[in-house]
């Protein structure tokens, strides 16, 4: 199928909605899919682990 033909065909039709283009972009979804859990779960969790204070001294 000639690419030109397809191009012409698509120009005549209405544009694809932006959201649909976003959902079709698997690599962009991949980026968010990796970034969100890594930041929200892992990195945030590690930050909390290193910030834990030492056990203070108690007199029972």
């Amino acid at each position: 199928m000639a690419d030109e033909e397809r191009k012409i065909e698509e120009q005549e039709e209405e544009p694809i909605p932006a959201w649909q283009l976003f959902y079709d972009n698997i690599m962009l979804l991949f980026f968010f899919g990796v970034a969100v859990p890594t930041l929200v779960y892992t990195v945030w969790g590690l930050m909390e682990i290193v910030q834990i204070p030492d056990l203070p001294s108690y007199s029972p």
Partner: peptide, 22 residues
């Protein structure tokens, strides 16, 4: 509420002192 225990003996000492006293 949570604390890091650098040395297990630090906690054991607290337990032992409590047991001895009470």
């Amino acid at each position: 509420e949570t604390y890091r225990v650098r040395n297990p003996e630090q906690f054991t000492a607290l337990v032992d002192a409590m047991v001895e006293k009470y």
